[in-house]
Amino acid sequence: MIPPYDSVTVRTVAKILIPLIQVFALYVVFHGAKSPGGGFQGGAILGASLILARLTAGPGVSVHYLPGTSALRLGAVGVLIYGVVGLLSLFGGAAFLDYSALPLPGAHEDELHAIGIEAVEVGVAVAVACVMLSIFDDLAPTERPYRQGR
C-alpha cells in the first residue's frame, strides 16, 4: 500500500471529490439505458475514484476500500451477476440475455427489459471497477519513489 500523499491540499480535495465521483459513477451506470454511459463507463469512473483513494489517502483509510484480494473476488461477483441474468433468461425459455423471458411475475415486457439491462450494467460496472482496482494494486509500489516532505 502506498503511504498517504504528503500534501494537505491534495488529500483534502481528494477527500471531498471521491464521494462526488462515486455518486457520478452511479449516475452514469443507472442512467446509461437512456443517455450516454453505461456499465463499463460507470465502472471505470468508480474504479478511478477507488484508485484516487489508494493514491492519496494512505493505507489507514483506503484499506476500507476493498483491501487485498477482495477486489478481485468482487470482480468475479460482477461477472457472476452478468452470467446469472443471462442464464435466467435462458432458463425462461429464450436466448441468452433475452430479457423478455426473465422469470419475474407481474412485470411488463418493457419493465423486464429495463430491469434486465440495469442488472447486467451493474454486473459489468462492479467487474470493471474491481478489476481496475486489482490491477492497480498489483502494479503499485509499496512506497513512493522519492523522499517525502521537506
Binding site: Y5, S7, T9, V10, V13, A14, I16, L17, L20, P145, Y146, R147, Q148, R150
Partner: peptide, 21 residues
C-alpha cells in the same frame, strides 16, 4: 468540479516535480 480539481492537479504535478529535484 473543474475549478476544484484543476488547481489541485496542478499543485500535485508541480510538487512532484519539485520533490523529485
Amino acid at each position: 468540479f473543474i475549478i476544484i480539481a484543476n488547481p489541485t492537479s496542478t499543485h500535485a504535478i508541480a510538487r512532484a516535480a519539485f520533490v523529485t529535484g
